[in-house]
Amino acid sequence: MIITKQKDIQKILGQLKGKDRVFVVGCAACATKCATGGEEQVRILAEELAKNQKKVTGTIVLDTPCDMRIVKKELLHNEKAGLAESLVLLSCGAGVQSIAQVCPERDLVPALDTLFLGSIERLGNFNQYCSLCGDCIIDETAGLCPVTRCAKALVNGPCGGAVNGKCEVNSGQDCVWILIYEKLQKNPTNIKKYRKIKSNASISKPQRIKTR
């Protein structure tokens, strides 16, 4: 899931300078789970904008704003959205840009910052375990990704700077290489995999892909 956080309201208002009529768009998928762009956050933001002398012409929570087909169907011809000068978007960067592509004439104000692809530990508690590098090696690293979870993205082993099992860059973070090693140790064939030198990653991953 894509983890987002809301921008400071003053920043959003700054982007809306000179615009009086606004329409707020939320996301029923990731941003709802993140509690950054669901029904409730859309309502709260609309109230906040109204308090700041903006006329809110309407709101909508799209199923998945990152899906251009849904944007076309639900937003492009939305009457209330048509009355607004700006669309305030509570969605991730993929959602904002899908809307930008479908509605090229509209003034868009992103109201969220997009952080990372997250795993949910519990509500409001998200961890970045995958950085979408496009070259997965976790079959060799006990299912834990060093590209993401090592501060230096070292793929051949640790830097040696861990203090009491914690990363030298962030003492609240376990050294992922120690975790990997502990897991690998339980299976000798896995240790062999660790000893094999991993070559440099290909980082030229596709930015556009067609599967059919």
Binding site: A151, K152, A153, I197, K198, S199
Partner: peptide
Amino acid sequence: PVYDLDPVQLLK
């Protein structure tokens, strides 16, 4: 932070 290659890869 770059770390495009790690030390083992840079030695190689």
